[in-house]
């Protein structure tokens, strides 16, 4: 039986993206200030933060576009600053934050241009356009494309050559809700094929249901990393319990809840919202259930990513 050498085992165990104390200074500005990060194989990883938090700078360092001032960055086990990184680029798809394409080329020509740069057969281009829903516009010039279409074309470019790692900077910028849904459907398909996806977004509500893990970045530092659930628990933010009752029962409900450690109680006609800590959640639900069917509906509302985010970045 063939045994795996320790080095090979290490390489397999190592994350796709490994950052250790990565620093980037621009003059006196610490754009990225000591980032440690591991992104595993096949993970759908989100990076969120305000403008100027250092996301794009970190992205560009991960792609080897700009050198780090200090620290080490490895993608797929290869240091980004080394000569061997060129081979890794073949396995990477990248969608920049504001995708700028050549206005005079058609969509198909644009893809053919990038296919040639990537060493991918140009015959793969029509299928890539089909995949992002641009087949009908393949022979129109990019000049005539809407913002959403340009974004799709940029995404098609990133998908050329079946990359193992995708870096997508604000990929859903300019997309309508339907296109965003299709976009994430493609990402789920890719993840099922073992592709690692790293994306940034400022639309927190959009990202929170869809990524496996996320990192919150502020002031050049990773403030927190984990699943959305883990981050919520780490923050221990209060949650909301929304119930629906007959308006006549409001006093009875207030009476029951008054004996429990709850925060604000907001009532609008038959809708009542109760704010309480995570540890009080079950006690509140049990007390409401004990009201003999007077609670018509119940829904636990977890703190949003915005709540989590502002909790960390403030």
């Amino acid at each position: 039986m063939a045994s795996i050498s320790p080095e090979a085992a290490d390489a397999r165990a190592e994350a796709v993206v490994v950052a250790r104390q990565v620093v980037k200074h621009y003059g006196g500005v610490r754009a990225v200030d000591g980032v440690d990060l591991d992104i595993a194989h096949g993970e759908l990883f989100g990076l969120i933060g305000h403008n100027g938090a250092g996301k794009s700078t970190l992205f560009k360092m991960m792609l080897g576009l700009i050198p780090a001032t200090a620290g080490t960055l490895r993608i797929d086990g290869i240091p980004v600053s080394g000569g061997g990184f060129r081979a890794v680029r073949r396995r990477i798809g990248y969608l920049p934050e504001s995708v700028v394409l050549y206005e005079n080329l058609t969509g198909l020509e644009t893809l053919q241009f990038f296919a040639q740069l990537k060493g991918v057969p140009v015959a793969a281009c029509p299928a890539a356009l089909e995949r992002v829903g641009l087949a009908a516009a393949a022979r129109r010039r990019v000049r005539e494309y809407s913002k959403g279409m340009r974004q799709r074309l940029g995404f098609a470019q990133a998908l050329l050559g079946q990359p193992k790692i995708l870096f997508l900077d604000e990929p859903t910028n300019g997309l309508d809700p339907e296109a965003i849904r299709e976009f994430y459907a493609i990402l789920r398909g890719l993840r099922a094929d073992g592709v690692t996806v790293v994306l940034t977004s400022h639309i927190l509500a959009e990202i929170q249901e869809r990524v496996d893990r996320l990192a919150i970045m502020a002031a050049g530092k990773i403030q927190a990393v984990g699943s959305v659930q883990a981050l919520r628990e780490q923050m221990d933010l209060p949650l909301w319990i929304d119930i629906r009752i007959a308006p006549a029962d409001l006093d009875a409900v207030r009476n029951v809840l008054g004996r429990l450690p709850v925060g604000a109680i907001e009532a609008h006609d038959e809708h009542v919202s109760v704010r309480c800590g995570r540890d009080a959640k079950m006690a509140v639900i049990e007390a409401l259930a004990a009201l003999d069917g007077r609670v018509l509906d119940l829904h636990v509302r977890e703190p949003s990513l915005e709540d989590v985010f502002f909790g960390f970045s403030d």
């Binding site: 560009k60 680029r89 073949r90 990477i92 934050e97 700028v100 394409l101 050549y102 990537k118 940029g154």
Partner: peptide, 14 residues
């Protein structure tokens, strides 16, 4: 300046 250089630099070319 247009912002298209980053994408070109990310390609597997020197």
């Amino acid at each position: 300046e247009r912002g298209s250089l980053d994408l070109l630099l990310s390609m597997p070319i020197t």
